[in-house]
Simulated scan of single mutants.
Amino acid sequence: MKPHEKPPCENLTKLMDFVLLDFSELPHLERFLFGLLLVIYISILLSNGTIFLITKVDPALHTPMYFFLGNFSFLEMCYVSATLPRMLENLWTQRRTISLVACATQMFCFLVLGGTECLLLAVMSYDRYVAICSPLHYPLLMNPRICGQMVVGCWVTGVPVLVGLTFQIFSLPFCGSNLINHFFCDIPPILKLASGDTFGTEMIVYLVNVLFVTAPFLLILVSYGKIISTILRLSSSTSRAKAFSTCSSHLVVVTLFYGSGIITYLRPKNQDSGGTDKVLSLFYTIVTPLLNPMIYSLRNKDVIMALRKLVYK
């Protein structure tokens, strides 16, 4: 039998639902974890929702950089809502069963929103590249029409590809164990449960990850390489500090999100990687959306001023 081939579904009933194990190995902490995750979820919605609101209502933030930041905050609210509500329901009711259709729907939503985030982070790095490296052309290259087209492109580009990928994954036969050793229906734990030859599907998953994770990440690296090179050539230390402050927050967010995502999806897999995948998934599904508003607001005077205006009103 080939390394990626599993026993075929001979005379076995195909699965119609799965069981998400999530925190089942910590039964005595499930109520505490429910409360903790509920507080985190509410905090993510409130903090990202506040940033989204102030970028819309404060005229001082009607610039391309804050336009992208507002869309990014809205995306984070959608992104975390694809996984956390189900986790909270499982912890509260102790019923961890999820149907095959619901699992496929959750995976598709998670993949589309994750792919959109990768592309939007690349667009935000391009915005900073144009602002710092070509400031005279910035109003022309980043006008409202072009910015809107970029955001729409980020949202819709991955939909047809990820519809096909989700269909391909759930077209595989599932007739063995139905226990998903994860918090949600992610690709690696689902493929572990598939029967038959999964090599072709794994190659498709790898190519999609290269397209929506690695390629945008390389664009970000190129953008920041040119940004850093331009900043170092500035004669004034004050100018260098100001230029770097405009992109340092974005760089921190990119490091958190892409670091955990690339390690999870592109590293070699083994039979004992489930625990590591679960820990890493907490970073790009929960920790990053929670930290992003604090990273952007605490290091950004314009956002702080807009927050003060909103509070005073």
Rank of each mutant, 00 (worst) to 15 (best):
E10P: 10
S24V: 15
S24R: 04
E5K: 04
V39M: 08
L29R: 11
N48M: 01
D17C: 06
K56V: 06
L33F: 04
L15S: 12
F18P: 15
I42A: 03
S24Q: 15
S47E: 07
L45H: 05
S47Y: 02
L33Y: 05
S47F: 00
F23Q: 15
E30M: 13
G35I: 04
F52D: 05
S24D: 14
L53A: 05
G35Q: 05
H28G: 15
N48A: 07
I54R: 00
P59F: 01
L29H: 15
L53D: 05
T50Q: 07
R31T: 15
L29G: 15
I51C: 04
F32G: 08
K2V: 11
K2W: 11
M16A: 13
L46N: 08
E25V: 12
L26R: 05
I54G: 03
G49T: 04
H4K: 12
S43V: 11
L36G: 10
Y66G: 05
L29P: 12
V57L: 08
D17K: 00
L33N: 10
F32T: 10
P27E: 14
L37R: 03
L53N: 03
P64W: 01
L46E: 10
F23R: 09
M65W: 01
D58Y: 00
M65G: 04
V57R: 09
L33E: 08
C9Y: 03
L38N: 04
L38I: 03
M16W: 10
M16D: 15
P59L: 02
L45Y: 05
K14F: 15
P7A: 14
F34L: 06
L15F: 09
D58L: 00
M1H: 12
S47G: 03
L12G: 06
K6I: 09
V19W: 08
D17Q: 10
M16I: 13
I44S: 01
V39H: 03
G49I: 03
P27T: 14
P7S: 09
E30I: 09
F18W: 10
L12C: 07
N48T: 13
L15E: 15
G35E: 08
F34S: 04
P59Y: 01
L21N: 15
F52Y: 04
N48P: 11
D58R: 00
K14I: 11
N48R: 02
A60K: 03
A60G: 02
T63W: 01
F32N: 14
L61M: 00
L36D: 07
K6A: 09
K6M: 07
I40A: 02
I44K: 00
M1F: 13
K14Y: 11
T13S: 14
F23P: 11
L37A: 13
G35Y: 00
I51K: 01
M16T: 12
D22R: 02
C9V: 09
V19D: 09
L53F: 03
D58C: 03
Y41R: 02
E30A: 13
E10W: 06
I54K: 05
T55E: 06
V19C: 08
P27Y: 13
F52Q: 03
T13H: 12
P27G: 14
F32Q: 08
L46I: 14
P64Y: 02
L33T: 10
P3Y: 09
L20I: 14
L46V: 11
S24M: 08
F34W: 10
D58F: 04
H28N: 14
L15K: 05
L45I: 12
D17E: 13
S43E: 13
Y41C: 05
V19N: 07
F23Y: 14
F52T: 06
L61C: 02
N11M: 00
